[in-house]
């Protein structure tokens, strides 16, 4: 069952205009991995997108469709914590915003440690944080999640 949520769509900036976002919204307004569901609407605003809610057992999927062609899916547990995020679109979205500072830093550190001149999907897997990204310009897809924060009975494959 998917229903359209009440329209709270602001049109501040697109997700991909981070500089603008920084000046328009306080840091705490970012939705981020490990953050709370309250910030999903802020992401929708940054994306100029509409949110669709898809309740599932033990979590709620918030799907944001942006006019830019990006689709972001944020997975919030019943306690409100965002434990997973998935994205697809013509370009790489603002990952600093989607992952939050903590996991964006982990992503960047893992990239720096990769054996050089590897080209192909990025797969980062630690006990705390999993990140995957594939594709090329016109068609990027990725997901990130916190394995320890997955609600009981929810498999990581649900995040896609």
């Amino acid at each position: 069952m998917v229903k359209r949520s009440p329209s709270k769509v602001a049109t501040i900036c697109s997700l991909v205009v981070a500089a603008c976002v920084v000046s328009a919204a306080p840091e705490s307004a970012y939705a981020e991995l490990g953050g709370t569901v309250a910030s999903v609407e802020n992401d929708a605003a940054h994306l100029k997108g509409a949110v669709r809610l898809a309740p599932a057992r033990a979590y709620t999927l918030h799907e944001i469709e942006a006019a830019t062609g990006h689709v972001v899916r944020e997975y919030a547990a019943d306690d409100g914590q965002v434990f997973g995020v998935a994205w697809e679109g013509p370009t790489v979205p603002d990952l600093r915003q989607l992952l939050g500072e903590r996991y964006f830093a982990q992503f960047q550190q893992a990239i720096a440690k990769r054996k050089t001149h590897r080209r192909g999907p990025v797969v980062i897997e630690t006990s705390e944080f999993v990140f995957e990204q594939t594709g090329r310009l016109r068609d990027f897809r990725g997901r990130a999640y916190l394995p320890r924060a997955l609600p009981s009975g929810v498999a990581s494959g649900a995040i896609r």
Binding site: A18, A19, P93, Q97, L99, F104, Q108, T116
Partner: peptide
């Protein structure tokens, strides 16, 4: 490099050793 480019998160491949 603008921040919206930096925030795609990967490395800035601006040397021979980085780009390969």
């Amino acid at each position: 490099v603008p921040s919206s480019c930096q925030n795609t998160g990967g490395s800035n491949e601006n040397t021979l050793s980085r780009l390969g």
